[in-house]
């Protein structure tokens, strides 16, 4: 078992004084792909927002290696090596694809290796090289998602947070996105991914946590979850 890179210990967080996450604990080992699955509105994105520092914790702690993250600003958390590819597009709509990717390497450490990183992203996502001078708002949904992932890869991330990368996309595009995610996993990246569909991540994730009403109600390997239809039916309706 590899060392734990991310350690989340009993965190609670929410909006307007109402906790959405209730005492969640989780570890992500170096080089692993860990998936959080669960229905909409049960705290998956809230968890990623809390890790990225966009949401203050009301309890618990988050550590990356030996460093406490939960007292840092979002930009300091990015500098520490946690990069999020947010849900939906959240691109810079009036910037070109290239400018969006350059923003991914905004911090000085990543900026110093901009050309090298850009080449890596273009190799992984060749469509982005063709579209590099196109304004982001004119791209298709799948292309925008690719830019989002490419932008996340431009930073020197130790941990990549992917928030529902398949949301709103056609099945063929979802397959392409997951091919990229699988390549990233095989290249040794540490990934924490949230998804609504367990089937989509079951064969790719090293570990799956099922989130319901802000609490983990089941954890284990993907194959185990797929072999438990009663759990899938109860929590995911499938």
């Amino acid at each position: 078992m590899a060392d734990a890179l991310l350690k989340i210990d009993g965190i609670s967080a929410g909006y307007h004084g109402q906790d959405v996450l209730r005492g969640l604990s989780l570890t992500v080992a170096e080089g692993n792909l860990v998936a959080i699955v669960g229905p909409n509105g049960h705290g998956k994105s809230t968890l990623l927002r809390a890790i990225s520092g966009l949401l203050k914790l009301t309890g618990g702690s988050i550590q990356l290696g030996e460093r406490r993250l939960d007292r840092l600003r979002p930009d300091e958390i990015v500098a520490a090596g946690v990069v999020q590819v947010p849900q939906g597009d959240l691109l810079f709509p009036e910037m070109t694809v290239l400018e969006n990717l350059q923003m991914g390497a905004y911090l000085p450490a990543a900026s110093a290796r901009m050309a090298e990183r850009l080449e890596e992203v273009y190799t992984l996502l060749p469509k982005l090289r063709e579209r590099q001078h196109q304004v982001a708002s004119t791209l298709s949904g799948g292309e925008r998602r690719m830019v989002g992932i490419g932008r996340g890869l431009m930073a020197d991330a130790r941990l990549l947070l992917l928030d529902e990368p398949s949301l709103g996309l056609a099945p063929i595009i979802i397959d392409q996105i997951y091919e990229v995610i699988t390549t990233l996993k095989h290249s040794g990246r540490t990934i924490l991914l949230v998804e609504e569909s367990a089937a989509r991540v079951a064969d790719k994730a090293d570990h799956i946590h099922l989130l319901d009403h802000g609490e983990f109600v089941w954890s284990g390997a993907g194959s185990e979850l797929m072999a438990r239809p009663e759990i899938l039916a109860t929590y995911l309706g499938s």
């Binding site: 990225s52 966009l54 600003r73 979002p74 930009d75 990015v78 500098a79 990069v83 999020q84 947010p86 959240l90 691109l91 810079f92 709509p93 009036e94 910037m95 400018e99 350059q102 923003m103 991914g104 905004y106 911090l107 900026s111 932008r151 930073a155």
Partner: peptide
């Protein structure tokens, strides 16, 4: 410039800019 890109990024999407490491 890098600063100019950060200004435009912050104007276009504050949260996304924060997630790129921009100190808004």
């Amino acid at each position: 410039s890098r600063l100019g890109r950060a200004i435009r990024a912050t104007a276009q999407n504050r949260e996304a800019a924060q997630l790129m490491g921009v100190r808004v």
